[in-house]
Design a protein around this nucleic acid. Structure first.
Lengths: 330, 330
DNA sequence: TTGAAAGCGCTAACAC
DNA sequence: GTGTTAGCGCTTTCAA
């Protein structure tokens, strides 16, 4: 049977409130009794019941991480795996725990409401993958009055967020591609309703126009495999003269495009390639890829910091925190 | 302010115990009152407080996933990212939540006790990355009398687990390499005290001996980058005649070895390569790699199933569940 | 079928 | 400095 604070109190011959104070490092307990209680607790390996504490304090010490639900955006993608790992570590350091909230599809392919989870879980805060959060869910989160931060920016709601400097980073990346000698660059990009997509496209435009190049070869697509493949084919069919391809997102999306290129007889070797998202793996490819590397650890860590600032009642200074990307040449 | 069961009771003009029964689908409530309560609850978007429920029921509906702490074994590795994603999904389907428990290193590089988290969290069950779980932690988990399953096998304790068939899979992979024409195969492998390492080495031995080949070129190393690099160098220095390399683990470990090979002037192209762990990325390398692909989704899903069987009081039929690997030729 | 009441293990006023 | 007491929001007997 698990020990409770009552047993500890009995063993130490004090009231349970005294035990509570001693254990939580509050004042109002003599040095002597405190030590005695602490010793006993340690000896019997006492650990306060989490649920009881949460109930009494109305504070669970649990942070929820709401993953976006999207093809290629699961934990097995490069991006979220890195960010979640960093967040988990940062959350642990603060004595809290990270709960994964991944929206589920039901039989009909509808995304199940994650609201219930959020609402019932008495979570202390939320880190939310911002992009494809629908307005309905957003509204219900706000109704909870629970602190949250976005990773990436949400088109509907401006709120505390951490993201990379998409436009500038994209500009830099494309500028680098131009420096590498490419002039006719096609751009395959994600859904237009995601803010970062639009920003990265803007960066593409900025760079191309500054160099006096044609920036009209842009195609939007969803991240689903089939769409990505179709769009890739369309791109090379309608623009047989392109000498480079800029892909504004990484992970499986990029791999699907690479594969399509290869299968359609176009060796990626003949094409300049730029990807907004790095992976160490690109070092070993049989063609070279220029990338914008996002500081995944920093993103996860900073989001966590921002969240805890809010939880502790402070108002974070910056609402929108943009981290720089690093251009990786290969 | 959040609504409680009391408010609902008041609105429905019944006792809160009746509300509780109605909401939880228990019998002892007339069809009529039940409907009335349910309607109200739905209308006001009522969601029971999670902590209170957990406290009253001594059941939290939270599953903990204990990640191994090891270089290259964070969520950003291929393996765990895949397994955790699958587990998270399976857990959600059952109306539970997944909590990430990642052991932390403190300043001195010691691994902090994850026991506290486990003990205090009133978790309903644990999915544990088995390999490098130290005995002390293991003992304290057992003392909690909380259901758990291993992913991978633990050398110290035989318990419910799901894993791949390491020996057989390794054998198959090496046999395939031999079929590909390689005869002098070196084997770089992980720490000897991990069971799967030993099993994969056994598989290597099986295959080599069956083919009448020399299976003595085996080197163990930790997964830390520096060690991996040193061992790789040692392997090629002491065995300049090898025509292939078999690496018994994937992720960053493999990448470090690849990189070392390249930097030391040995093009991986000249070497047959086999890796126990697949990644889609290997399709795009400038050298070819034969791999054993582990069914990550299945592993995560099956572990979750096994855990819930235990939680519901059933005794799973098979204690040790070995899934087959798939050999991928490139 | 319904309701009253006790209790889950803890915290936090407030007395003493 | 210490103990008493009253909750936190829910479940669960047990009477009515």
């Amino acid at each position: 049977m698990k020990l409770t604070i009552n047993e500890i109190a009995e063993m130490a011959q004090v009231a349970k409130s005294t035990v509570s104070k001693a254990l939580n490092g509050q004042k109002g307990v003599s040095q002597e009794t405190r030590q005695r209680i602490l010793n006993i607790a340690k000896q019997v390996n006492f650990q306060p019941n989490f649920a009881a504490k949460a109930l009494a304090q109305k504070k669970s010490n649990i942070i929820g991480f709401v993953l976006p639900h999207e093809a290629g955006f699961s934990l097995s993608g490069f991006y979220w795996a890195g960010v979640v790992t960093a967040a988990a570590e940062e959350v642990s350091k603060r004595g809290n725990n990270l709960m994964i909230i991944s929206p589920l599809e039901n039989e009909e392919g509808h995304i199940l409401e994650i609201q219930d989870t959020i609402r019932s879980n008495s979570l202390d805060g939320l880190i939310i993958g911002a992009e494809q959060l629908d307005t309905k869910t957003l509204v219900s989160i706000m109704a909870e009055e629970i602190p949250f931060v976005f990773i990436g920016q949400n088109s509907t709601l401006q709120h505390y967020c951490v993201d990379v400097n998409n436009r500038e980073g994209s500009d830099k990346l494309v500028t680098q591609m131009i420096k590498n000698g490419f002039k006719k660059i096609g751009c395959i990009t994600g859904p237009e309703d995601y803010q970062y997509t639009r920003e990265r496209v803007e960066g593409f435009n900025d760079a191309m126009k500054r160099a006096g190049l044609d920036s009209s070869r842009i195609m939007h697509t969803s991240y689903y495999e089939e769409d990505a493949r179709k769009t890739t084919l369309k791109m090379i069919e309608e623009n047989p003269d392109i000498d480079a391809l800029y892909i504004t997102a990484g992970g499986e999306f990029t791999l699907n495009i690479f594969e399509t290129l290869r299968f359609s007889g176009i060796s990626p070797k003949k094409l300049g390639l730029g990807v907004f998202d790095d992976s160490r793996i690109f070092d070993f490819l049989d063609f070279s890829v220029t990338t914008a590397k996002q500081p995944l650890n920093q993103i996860g860590a900073m989001a966590t910091q921002l969240l805890f600032e809010q939880i502790s009642g402070h108002t974070p200074e910056e609402k929108i925190n943009l981290l720089p990307v690093e251009i990786i040449l290969r």
